[in-house]
Design a protein around this nucleic acid. Sequence first.
RNA 1: GGUAUCGUGGCCGAGUGGCUAGGCUCAGCUCUGCAAAAGCUGCUACAGCGGUUCGAAUCCGCUCGAUACCUCCA
Length: 497
Amino acid sequence: MNSQNLYIYNSISKSKEKFSPIHADVVGMYVCGPTVYSNVHLGNCRTFLSFDLVFRYLKHLGYKVRYVRNITDAGHLENDGESGDDPILKKARIEQLEPMEVVQKYTVDFHTTMAKFNALPPSIEPTATGHIAEQIKIVEKIIAEGFAYEKNGSVYFDVLKFNEINKYGKLSGRNLEDMIANTRELAAQSEKKNPQDFALWKKAEPQHIMRWPSPWSDGFPGWHLECTAMSTKYLGNKFDIHGGGMDLKFPHHECEIAQAEACNHESPVNYWMHANMLTLNGKKMSKSTGNFILPNEMFSGENNILSKPFSPTVTKFFMYQAHYRSILDFSNDALEASEKGFNKLMDSYRMLSEMKISQFSESTGKSSIDVAFWRKACYNAMNDDFNSPILIAHLFEVVKFVNSLKEGKDTITETDLHLLQKTLHDFLFDVLGLQDIASESSQDSQKLISAVELLIQLRNQARANKDFSTSDKIRDELASKGIQLNDGKDGTTFSLN
RNA sequence: GGUAUCGUGGCCGAGUGGCUAGGCUCAGCUCUGCAAAAGCUGCUACAGCGGUUCGAAUCCGCUCGAUACCUCCA
């Protein structure tokens, strides 16, 4: 296994650390999933695709990974005060649906979208509403440990008390004294002892439909609780990796740490990973501000931002050309650049796959390309905190290899050719999870392909007869319909625009 | 206001004390009936000002600018 050399940037230590799982060869990973009250936008997708890369690479290294990603179907309160609104309930009112119909609708949208991106489903995808009993147990435990108090049927986590024994804020680099000093004007009348306290259980207002019985009231769980309940249930009190979007670092993940430590007296997670935001017009994509683009708008091209549609795999390739911890700005130009690069890479992949060693066997029996060194460089890139942009830069070196092999400028041995083919395939499809869209064609498109090939034949006959007006007509008419002919040394191929 | 992060060539984006990322664009060339496509070659940047160092885009300080979190958001 190459795993000895994997380094992961740990948000809590702010440094790259050698990855060493609790149990050799087995990895437990938890990632905060979506709140299903609206369609996932592209920014949401970026985070899940970042962790899909992590999941795929760990598996590629030979780890058995249990990947848990929750579905938040209970809704958080938009404001922490008593007048808060639950986005799922709000949406149910607007769309005149049962809350669970809202949840179902957007869960399905999430799954189909991730499938289009060819993201692997997690091992377990638990829902918050399916784990109310577990959440209540945790609240009871935290109360028993003395770090929570009940007020009017609601239960709050006592951050000040917790901070006496265990520093609150270590993930986000905040310190409680500063936070208290900088508290904005106090909410008029809060049940909380301190503004920093957060709800573990909320008593439901009469109009609140999503409610469950508990020892304290008919109500619903606080918004940080589900992740603690479900991560520890499926991965244990201490597990390897916890991931999520950068925007969840505080307060969500900070509160998760506090809850788990209050219960179990140990830090729940060894490696905290945070994926950075996808921005649009230099600003974070966000549901509430309306600054976002939906995946389907990408794929159809029906939007004001893009000049044309972009496929899911090109979109993903674009994202992976930036490191997951960097902010990535979304733009039409950047997408177009990625698409061209992607197509070039896939063309080379196809050419390489079709190469037979007999083409080079008359050579000296030596490779002039150091395949093993190149392969190592690819692994080094991924081992350095999943550096997909560096990996992709190395994959582009294959474009040069393939061209110079074709031109006979380089030689390769059979062993090296197979290694090159396999390594490229593994990284392209297993690790990055890309799809070769051009070679995936249905029976119908097969028929169209043969029709175009017939036209190519006719055109080449015309060219042979120097009947250039006919040949140019075929070429130009096809081009106007989005079919572009490419004349090469070995004949004419075509591509779709 | 507090806490972080970041500022790289025409664009997107890596990296990091000394050796050229990569992609796209652009220019020149090769190929081609012409074009397109493809290939080859070229384009040496790191916000500003100081400091440390034999040497900094990379470390330190300040200034300016941007973003994120501090209210739900991946």
